[in-house]
Amino acid sequence: MTAWMENFVQNRLPELALGALFVAAAVAVTLIASRLVNRLMCRLIERQKKINSGSATILAFFRYIAVAAVYFAGFAVIVSNIPALSAGVNKVLAAGGILAVIGGLAAQEALGSVVSGLMILAFKPFVIGDVVRCVDTNISGVIEEITLRHTAIRTYENKRVIVPNSVMNSAIVENADYADSRVCVFLEIGVTYESNVQLAKQLLAETVAAQPDYLDVRTPDQKAEGAPEVQVVVLALADSAVTLRASLWARDNATAFRLKCAVQEEILQVYERAGVEIAYPHMVVVPKQQDV
Rank of each mutant, 00 (worst) to 15 (best):
L244V: 02
Y214W: 13
Q211C: 12
G190A: 12
A95L: 07
G190D: 04
I51H: 06
K49V: 09
I153H: 01
R245N: 13
M168N: 03
V197Y: 06
S86H: 10
A274E: 04
V127S: 04
A210F: 09
V173F: 03
S34A: 15
I78D: 00
V263E: 00
N11E: 13
R182N: 15
N90A: 11
P14G: 11
C261P: 02
R43P: 00
L85M: 13
D252S: 12
S86K: 12
V263R: 01
L248G: 01
T155Q: 06
G88P: 02
E265R: 10
L268M: 08
L248R: 00
C261D: 15
I146G: 01
K288G: 09
V132K: 01
K124L: 08
A68G: 10
K260S: 13
V70P: 00
G190I: 03
K201G: 02
D136W: 03
V183R: 02
L215K: 07
A24I: 15
I45E: 01
K260V: 07
D213F: 07
C184W: 06
Q264G: 13
V132F: 03
Q108D: 08
D216V: 08
V132Q: 04
T2Y: 07
V132M: 04
R12T: 10
A100M: 15
D213R: 15
G103L: 13
T137A: 10
M119A: 15
P287W: 06
Q289K: 11
R218P: 00
T155I: 07
A106L: 13
R182P: 00
A17N: 13
L268V: 12
R39I: 04
A69Q: 03
S240K: 14
A73G: 08
V197K: 13
S116N: 02
S86I: 04
A110P: 04
V161T: 11
A3D: 14
S170W: 05
N11Q: 13
A33K: 00
F72K: 05
A246I: 01
P164N: 06
N11I: 12
T137H: 04
A24N: 14
A26H: 05
S116D: 05
K159N: 11
